[in-house]
Write a protein that binds this DNA or RNA. Structure first.
Lengths: 228, 228
DNA sequence: TAGTGGTCTAGACCACGTA
DNA sequence: ACGTGGTCTAGACCACTAA
């Protein structure tokens, strides 16, 4: 068989963009036209162009057609970190120390992030790599989103792992930034006040129901790496 | 028609996972079996399961079948930031000031990142939002990867935009971290020494040929946000 | 209204990896 | 060897949206 693969079509489109045959902003031929050119089924072209669209290289709209993204920028996939896996990948033992657990109304900033104003479960925890603090975790959980949440012993199960196993996490936001260590954070992470911490704030919904918002603070030296 | 959609199948699989019918680590029925259950074509089931696999919720292997990921973790897409677009989205005018341009051998750390030891083009630049420094850019370019690079006037065209338009960027790495401001960085970004900066290091190849490595330092307050 | 992408079908063959 | 996912085909209808 001399069937052309969707990867080959994708590659040819990329080649035409990189050699300037098609330039950013250009509208390219329709799926039907390309299918004829490559002598393949339209579904195969569709597969290739859909793949490019997912990577941000082309933009597709009905009726208007497919065009090369004005600023083709590949999108990086970063895995939402699984602390246990990250720690164990370094060879260290992963442990999880619960520092605080309470039921409280969240501060305004947190309430705004998660879109809830009532009483939430608040956890402060310290995932460890061996004996070393790996990060500081400040979490707020919506008890109405997680059946049985109030009975979970978070001293033995990390909230993250409990949620992954019990709640279908559908959507979420992720914010990354740098923040100075406050007194409490410096102490928990065994670093100095004002030191640059890597901050990750994640808020998650299950459908339209807010589930949790968590702020992770990583000590100086932490790096989040990925491949584009 | 009462055709079932691949999204519906995906939703049903998610439901079965979230309700515990299928648990992390379980192998689920084959595509053919599911197609029969849902009375649809196998391609439709394939589309649904492939979508779930791309999001990290299931793992698929030939012969072995499809199983629920032991730790189902959604993967975040973060857009590689386009400074101009980011700045202009805030309503400010984007400008780009070239602080330094020279031909030099990179320091060991940079040489290791990009995998080159010879003389490279080194740029230091300051993208601005209005009159305010947006970030500090330290870039190393491989002149052999970019035809005509030595003749480009980077005082009027930002290196990033030049590259996007002239080089097919295929692969790259991205590292995010927090770093303290040194004296030069604090001055350029109008902040204090030791303040936490958000650091982004991006290295890009065109095929197997190293093109550029760039380190962006963002002043305190910068946030990289995305949706999972 | 018409053109484009989005999707589903039914069938086929292939590639891979376990046994 | 054989079962599973990976992919391609040819055709069809639908959904969206600009003209």
């Amino acid at each position: 068989m001399s069937q052309i693969s969707w990867q080959a079509i994708r590659g040819e489109v990329e080649r035409r963009v990189s050699t300037g045959i098609w330039r950013p902003g250009d509208t390219i031929p329709s799926e039907a036209a390309l299918a004829e050119e490559f002598a393949c089924a339209r579904a195969t072209v569709n597969r290739a162009l859909r793949s490019l669209a997912e990577d941000g290289m082309v933009e597709r709209r009905r009726r208007t057609g497919t065009r090369i993204a004005p600023l083709p920028s590949p999108k990086a996939r970063i895995p939402v970190p699984l602390l246990r896996a990250e720690v164990e990948a370094t060879g260290a033992a992963y442990t999880y120390r619960l520092l605080r657990r309470r039921l409280a109304a969240p501060p305004a900033l947190v309430a705004q992030r998660i879109g809830l104003r009532g009483r939430l479960v608040n956890l402060r925890a310290l995932p460890l790599a061996g004996a070393k603090p790996y990060c500081l975790e400040e979490r707020w959980l919506n008890p109405e989103a997680v059946p049985g949440l109030l009975d979970v012993d978070f001293a033995t199960v990390s909230a993250n792992e409990y949620l992954l196993a019990h709640v279908p996490l559908s959507k979420g936001t992720l914010a990354l930034s740098a923040a100075p260590a406050g007194a409490a954070e410096a102490k928990a992470l065994a670093t100095g006040i004002g030191k640059p911490l890597f901050e990750m704030i994640r808020t998650t919904w299950s459908g339209t129901c807010p589930v949790t918002t968590v702020r992770l603070l990583f000590p100086p030296g932490y790096r989040l790496e990925t491949v584009v």
